[in-house]
Every structure is written in structure tokens, then in C-alpha cells.
Nucleic acid binder design. Structure first.
Lengths: 209, 209
DNA sequence: CGAAAACACGAGCGATCGCTCGTATTTCCC
DNA sequence: GGGAAATACGAGCGATCGCTCGTGTTTTCG
């Protein structure tokens, strides 16, 4: 039933990397559905037959690419959230610390959104992305809890959802913008999130500036 | 070269409406690429041959659907922006007046996002949606200009872009949410936009509450 | 009424795409 | 060196899908 995994040579592992690189480019250009496996093979400089020596089918390619992205994303998240004292840091600094690495990740991995932002994403792909989404949700929840401890849990969930949604919405605007516009747009993103979050961090009746 | 348009009977016009209704449902379920014309025909209770009596090809169906949505959207926008004195109205009231009708439109037209939010949208479709996007952009620009006249034009453009992007990002969160969550999420949307916009409406040094 | 146009049907054509298979070459390892 | 496994190739199979076409029915209109 299950085919035993084959022992990859160094050449083969290199090919797999090349194929995934090519797939990322093709998916970014055409989207998942429209991209053809033969086009991925051609982009990688490989025959269709060779491609299927390494990946069982099109979805397996996407899945391997997803795993690679998820790993890179996890690293970016760790960089973004590690050692950040959400309760003590001034809000602007906190936003800088958290947002800049994740924006940088999305700029460095242009295929990422093309693969994961699609509504017709196969279930297997969504499953691969879910742990990283939940991890992100947990971290944002933590920050909200640290900075707005008086907020009821239900509203805390809602706030975290809104923060993540707004953030993810601004990413394509930033990555698609020409270079000189990216900095100001990132500043605007921080304004949106910061001004949304700021009033929640004050207790009722507290009017310190 | 050009085929002359045929004179539609009442029965035919009714069929076209049914086909577009069916297409909206199928597109909403599967997305544009994955949806098959035979599935649309079946959903409409019509043979594939009949479908092509009314629409030249798949893209023509999407285009007609786009036109329908664009018209409905224009109506919703007019309802949202007409007779709103952006300079005089308190910000919360302004947000209520503008946001509620557009949210209602998106709730009433679930196929809309499925057709227009896709990255692989054919160019013809994007062209059909562009006038309405530009109209929306112009209206938001007007509001920003009314409420923050001191803002340099360049920043005004950026602000309008951000407002629209954030708004459109929150729409799927609201429409996908179960009913009891929609109200609170809409309130959050207004908070995000309101708090982002509020500081821009004050001149430097103005600290009225 | 009668002819022309519009409407309706559904089998199947042509093209595309994911994927296979037979074969040839390269690498590993004893 | 030599056999096995891994890598490489590309023509083409099978399935799917957008769309056509031949045929038959209903509506319109003079």
C-alpha cells in the first residue's frame, strides 16, 4: 500500500529545492489553480517525468512549499515576538518590534501570499498553514492580554482577530507598492493598529496622554 | 464579423436572470477557475447548449454578473455617501452612515467577494470593477479632504487607500461570522477606521477631546 | 396559418492538463 | 567492476472542461 521512501542522493535533494523554487515563482505568477505542473517543470529546467520522481502530485508540491513557508514564517514570528516585553514596552516600540520582521518576511517571500491567500486552497494546504495561524493568534492574544488586562476574554478574542485581519490586509498593499511607498505604508499600518489598540490599554476614567 | 444582437423574448430574459443567479451561487461555492460552465447550467436547470444561447463564453457570464454587482454596488455607495455632510457630522455618526449600507450590501450579495476578490481575475473583469473602485476611492478622498484639510495631498491618497483596504479586509470577517458576532465585529470595524482617522482631523497643537 | 426567429436539448469535439511509462543515463556501494 | 537504486527524459494516456452543432420545440408576427 504505502510506497517506501526512497533514499535521496545529494543531486536529488538539490533538484527538489530547485523545483520548489520554481513552483514558488510559478504560483506567484499564476496562482495555484492556473499554474500547470509542466510549467513548473519547465521553470525548474526539468522534464515532467523528473518532477514526478520527487513529488507525488501537484498538491504535494504545494504542500512541500507550504511546509517551507511555514518554517520560515515560524522563524519570522519567533524573531518578531521573542524577548518582547509586551506589558512594559511603549506601544510604538512594541509595534516596530513585532511588525517589521513579519513585513520583511513577506517582502522576502513573494510566493507566500499567492499560495495561502487563495479561497480555493485545498484542505491539505489549509491544514498545513493552520498551526502557524494559531500560533500567531496565540501570540497576539498574549500581547492584548498584557496591554489590556481589563478587557473581557470575549472582546480579547475579537480584538486579536481584528488586529490579525487588518495586518494581513495591509501586507499585499505594502508588498505590491513601489519601493519608495513601502516605508510610509508600513508607518500607516502601525498607526492603524496602534490607534486601534491604544484606547483599550487605558482603564475607564484614565486620561493620561 | 460582429454578430448582430438577437431580440430576446421575455422567456429568454428570465432565463438570463436565472443563469446569472446560478452562476453567482456556483462562483461563491467554487471560485471562478474551479467553477465549470456545465455546473452553472445544471444549477440553473438548463442544458449547456441553452446556456450558450445567452452568453458567449464563461467570461461573458462573469462579466454580466460583474455588471450586475457593479450596479448594485453603485446604488449601495450612493445610499452610503449621498447627503452626508462629511465636514459637519460627528465622526461616529459619519462612520455609521457610510459603513452600514456597504456592509449590508456585502451581506446581501455573498457571491460578490467570491468573484472580485480573486487574484487570478481575468483582465476584463478587473476592468468592469475598476470604475466602481475609483468612484469609491474618490468618495473616500472627499471625506478625508473634508475632515483633514491640512493633510498634504500625497498623504491624503495614502490615507484613503488604507481606509479602503482595511474596510475591504474586514468585510469577509463580518460576512463569514455567525449572526450574533456580526454586530460587534462591525462596531470594531468602525473603531479601527474611526481611531485611525480621528487624529488626522485635529490640527497640530489642537487637543480638544 | 405559416414562416422565421428564439429557445431548448445533450452528445460529443477539440484542447488542455495532471500524470504515467518505457527507456536511457548516472551514482552508490559492495 | 558490476548490479541495484536513483535520476532523467518526453511522448502520450486518460480525464476534464469549455464550447459546438444538429435537431427539435415554442413563440412571434405579418
Amino acid at each position: 500500500m504505502t510506497e517506501r521512501p526512497r533514499r535521496r542522493q545529494a543531486r536529488g535533494q538539490q533538484r527538489m529545492v530547485e523545483i520548489l523554487d520554481a513552483a514558488a515563482r510559478v504560483f506567484a505568477r499564476s496562482g495555484y489553480e492556473t499554474a500547470t505542473t509542466n510549467a513548473i517543470a519547465a521553470e525548474a529546467g526539468v522534464s515532467p517525468g523528473s518532477l514526478y520522481q520527487f513529488f507525488a502530485n501537484k498538491e504535494a508540491i504545494a504542500h512541500a512549499l507550504a511546509d517551507r513557508f511555514v518554517t520560515a514564517m515560524r522563524t519570522a514570528h519567533e524573531e518578531a515576538f521573542a524577548g518582547v516585553d509586551a506589558a512594559a514596552l511603549p506601544l510604538p516600540e512594541l509595534l516596530d518590534r513585532v511588525i517589521d520582521p513579519i513585513v520583511a518576511f513577506n517582502l522576502a517571500n513573494p510566493g507566500f501570499k499567492a499560495l495561502f491567500a487563495r479561497p480555493d486552497m485545498p484542505e491539505g494546504l489549509a491544514a498545513a498553514a493552520r498551526p502557524i495561524q494559531e500560533s500567531l493568534f496565540g501570540r497576539v492574544m498574549g500581547i492584548v492580554a498584557d496591554r489590556a488586562p481589563a478587557l473581557p476574554p470575549e472582546e480579547r478574542v475579537r480584538t486579536a482577530r481584528v488586529l490579525i485581519q487588518v495586518f494581513q490586509a495591509m501586507i499585499p498593499l505594502i508588498t505590491a507598492a513601489p519601493e519608495p511607498e513601502r516605508g510610509p505604508l508600513t508607518v500607516e499600518l502601525k498607526h492603524v493598529l496602534g490607534r486601534y489598540l491604544d484606547p483599550l490599554t487605558r482603564l475607564p476614567g484614565d486620561d493620561t496622554p
